[in-house]
Design a protein around this nucleic acid. Structure first.
Length: 504
RNA sequence: GGUGCUAUCGUCUAGCGGUCUAGGACAACGGCCUCUCACGCCGUAAACCCGGGUUCGAGUCCCGGUAGCACUACCA
């Protein structure tokens, strides 16, 4: 049975989109594109209590930033809408009614408090075939009374009637055959009258069916409930169009145990969100990859390789190359610890690939923040000299500040190592030499200065390092003639005089 | 507790019975380059969870153990 590939990314708007969720979206996208299929974005907001304003917009903006394009769904529309589950109440109600009519589900009046009490009283209590006849539901209460209670406004839920002791086989595209016995499943709540909304399980199956989803690619946390979903497809008689499942390994904390959580990011000093997130409830701000200076291509590349690996040793992939190379069969089964260090390396790779004009464009606003206004071509030139030594655009400031302003202080470690007893004398003499040089080009300066050093029989390193300290304020930076070339004669001499004054 | 999934260097991973004295990348360390710091290049250290099978032969297949993770809600 071959049908058009249609996948969906279906987050719930309970906060910022987690980086693990981003990877799920990415894999869905890669799979869809590779197979000439479509990707849907559906918002699973069936829990009215957990709704967070702004989350939906955040998700859309994140995917946009990362270059994950949605073909159908929220924000782009389509023929199978609405794509927000809270707007599909009537659709779900119809299917719930059908299940009830077919005797595949029943109405239960047990309150959350009663269930809680039951769980406290009976160890490992489970609402299932073994216990449901002792509970307050339409299986034990006469039909007329059930009607009356509902008419009286009593709240209820609809539970799925799971037949016990049946092995449910599931073919997972990543894990192969998975078998689970139905007895371990409970009679899941499918619908709650309180907010007239279904729970995830029902909404998910109904929507995937109605939206003609061919492949469900989601996190491993769903694997235990996948058999329930199979049962639901069967109950509706949709088994022949049931999507194929692929359960992705989870992203784990870099330290210690457990899956990566929203709080790990700022605790360990790296973002777990694509974009900066301002929580409207707590007011806390969490850092994002975009604001931290990551390129979307780097984040995509990094994430793609966290749990997936093509044949060969290639590690740098554009989105198109990923689309081409991706395969679910090559997704790892084990969870991956989130290795933040490698993310920096990816960013570095993409940064050095960018041309100087592009980088200058990105760097100019940062320069402005430091009070520097410089012409584009100058910035581009300078950036070109140092781009290989940074991972992020914002680090460019540290590497280039001395091109724009004279050092105001001198790095102590550099002084200790490179500013010798003779240094003031050397600099003084060099100052005299340079004052007489009119051609300040790199080639000429190199010729003149090297000749002078040779004549005086000074050590090249000793003189040049002291010179560098005058210009940069520390023992670092690009080639010294690149610096003098950029700042010019007057500034070079001025910095030398300042240093002589301050360091003698 | 129950059920399921998983298990190769510190980390991400390659490996789909012999070519594995286990390959790549990040990180670490050392060297080269060099006026400095980087980059780059070269190199070093570093792993098949344990125990049984199957097989002429197991990192690769099977079973058990152990460990990790997930799920076990009127959350997704």
């Amino acid at each position: 049975m071959s049908r058009p590939v249609r996948v969906r990314f279906a987050p719930s708007p309970t906060g910022a989109l987690h980086i693990g969720g981003v990877r799920t979206a990415l894999y869905n996208y890669l799979f869809a594109r590779q197979n000439g299929g479509q990707m849907l974005l559906r918002i699973e907001d069936t829990d009215s209590n957990r709704f967070v304003p702004g989350a939906e917009e955040y998700i859309i903006e994140s995917l946009q930033w990362l270059g994950i394009k949605i073909d159908e769904g929220i924000s782009v529309g389509g023929e199978n809408g609405p794509y927000r589950q809270s707007e599909r109440r009537e659709i779900y109600k119809k299917y719930v009614r059908q299940l009830l009519l077919d005797g595949k589900a029943y109405i239960a009046f047990d309150t959350p408090q009663e269930l809680e009490a039951k769980r406290a009283e009976v160890a490992n209590f489970q609402y299932d075939a073994s216990t449901r006849m002792q509970m307050r539901n339409s299986l034990v209460i006469p039909e007329a009374e059930v009607r009356q209670r509902i008419a009286d406004g009593e709240q209820y839920v609809v539970r799925f009637k799971v037949e016990p002791n049946e092995d449910i086989h599931l073919h997972d595209l990543i894990r192969g055959e998975v078998v689970i016995n139905s007895s371990i499943l409970d009679d899941k709540v499918l619908y709650k009258s309180a907010d007239e909304l279904p729970t995830y399980h029902l909404a998910n199956i109904v929507d995937d069916y109605l939206m003609k989803i061919s492949h469900v690619i989601r996190g491993e946390e769903w694997l235990p409930s996948a058999p329930l979903h199979v049962l639901l497809y069967r109950a509706f008689g949709w088994e022949d169009v049931m999507p194929q499942f692929a359960h992705l390994p989870l992203l784990l904390k870099p330290d210690g145990n457990g899956k990566l959580s929203k709080r790990d990011g700022d605790r360990l000093g790296f973002p777990v969100f694509p974009l900066e997130w301002h929580d409207p409830k707590t007011g806390t701000i969490s850092s994002g990859y975009r604001e931290s200076g990551y390129f979307p291509e780097a984040v995509i590349n990094f994430l793609a390789l966290l749990g997936w690996h093509a044949e060969g040793d290639k590690e740098l992939y554009t989105m198109d190359e990923l689309i081409n190379a991706f395969s679910l069969q090559r997704v790892s089964k084990a969870g991956a610890k989130f290795d933040f260090e490698k993310g920096k390396w990816f960013n570095h790779q993409y940064l050095i690939q960018k041309n100087n004009d592009e980088l200058a464009q990105l760097f100019m606003p940062i320069l402005k923040e430091h009070g520097i206004e410089a012409p584009h071509d100058k910035v581009a030139r300078i950036v070109g000299l140092v781009k290989e030594r940074v991972n992020f655009v914002k680090e460019l400031w540290y590497e280039t500040c001395f091109f724009f302003e004279a050092p105001t202080e001198y790095d102590e470690k550099s002084l200790k190592k490179r500013w010798k007893e003779d240094s003031p004398k050397h600099i003084n003499e060099l100052l005299n030499v340079l004052e007489g040089v009119d051609d300040f080009s790199a080639e000429n300066l190199d010729k003149v200065v090297m000749a002078w050093i040779a004549e005086k029989e000074y050590g090249v390193g000793v003189v040049m390092n002291a010179f560098r300290i005058c210009l940069v304020g520390a023992a670092r930076g690009p080639h010294i003639w690149a610096i003098t070339d950029e700042i010019g004669k007057e500034e070079t001499l001025a910095r030398m005089r300042t240093a002589l004054k301050k360091l003698s």
